[in-house]
Amino acid sequence: MEGNFSEALLLMGVGLATVFVVLLLVICFGNLLIKAVNKFAPEEEKPKQIASKPVAALVDGAVQQAINKAVEQLTGGKGRVEKIVKL
């Protein structure tokens, strides 16, 4: 048991020190990465805006009318269609 205790004590020292070193390295690397990214890729690429097509361009009048009627029927006349998006 005494051997176990000294081994556990050794593991405690090695273990805690290693965790500290790893997290310190993560912090240092993180800071270096922040500096590198700020220097070489400072601008965040903005997703290209896809111009939203008007509803009329996506569906023809008859389809739009059918959707409107279906929504009206389902919601008892309380709901209305604001936007139709093609998935």
Partner: peptide
């Protein structure tokens, strides 16, 4: 420390 491009940073 200011992060200018968080997306790139989060990938690396």
């Amino acid at each position: 420390t200011v992060i200018k491009n968080e997306r790139a940073l989060k990938i690396i």
